[in-house]
Design a protein around this nucleic acid. Sequence first.
DNA 1: TTACCAAAAGACCTTTTTGTCTTTTAATAA
DNA 2: TTATTAAAAGACAAAAAGGTCTTTTGGTAA
Lengths: 146, 146
Amino acid sequence: MFNKETEYALRGLVYIKLQNLKGRRPGTAEVSKEIEAPPFFTAKILQRLVRSGLLESLKGKGGGFFFDPEKPELQLVKLVSATEGDRSFTGCGIGLKYCDKANPCPLHEKYAPIRESINNLLSEETVQSLAQKVHKKEISLTNALK
Amino acid sequence: MFNKETEYALRGLVYIKLQNLKGRRPGTAEVSKEIEAPPFFTAKILQRLVRSGLLESLKGKGGGFFFDPEKPELQLVKLVSATEGDRSFTGCGIGLKYCDKANPCPLHEKYAPIRESINNLLSEETVQSLAQKVHKKEISLTNALK
DNA sequence: TTACCAAAAGACCTTTTTGTCTTTTAATAA
DNA sequence: TTATTAAAAGACAAAAAGGTCTTTTGGTAA
């Protein structure tokens, strides 16, 4: 579904949001440990997210990552665009440049609705909505079995 | 959706099947040209498919690629397993090792049905069924606009 | 104002994917 | 049997993805 960067970003951001809800700002070491992702790579990914304006950070003692409460919720489609680029869930199933209802590839009829439901999912869900689910329910962010 | 190898394999196999229906056995040069894929890479991919038993080939004059009429239709899931490995449409959306109905990640509820419909598509459709669609309808295999 | 802390920046590396090319092998036809 | 044809095999290489590490910068707190 997603590449590694997006997976780590998703897990990391949901973890950060959960901690923010508790009034905390986790740092790279904590985030990478909790989501079981490579530490330096996690740091790099979070940095990129800050640079692209999807996440905030604070240096120095007591520093760490957090979401700007002023900003709207972060739709997954925005996140995935930032990590994988725009074309990840827009292309043709078999890789044709021009493939649409008027000029379909042989997979189009069945694949188009699936692609659409992926895009719906990515528009409907946000980092915050995912964090809520983890917060409220018996839902996990890591590989630890409960 | 798929990686390049799978895309080229899909387009190539459908083209080969279409030519087989006309009593022809296309070679690597023809296939790569018709599906607009890199010639040497196409050759390598078709070779791999032959080695894994999904396609037949004949060397020498009049040689080329063809499907064994004795074999059952080639389900896309078989093809994708050969080119991308088994785990491409079985994993968790956010990359957790253990994620299922009993121990779901926050994306599971909405992603699981999508993943299932992808797997249904890949089981239902075959190289032959896609070739039939191209044969019967106004459906394209290449980037050429009609 | 100094000591310390933690993110930012960026160089560097490894692996996988994607792609190219040459040589060898096997089949066919003359 | 020889010339020709086309796939098989495998070495090689570029690009992208994934990952590591060191140095610099900017904050905080004592």
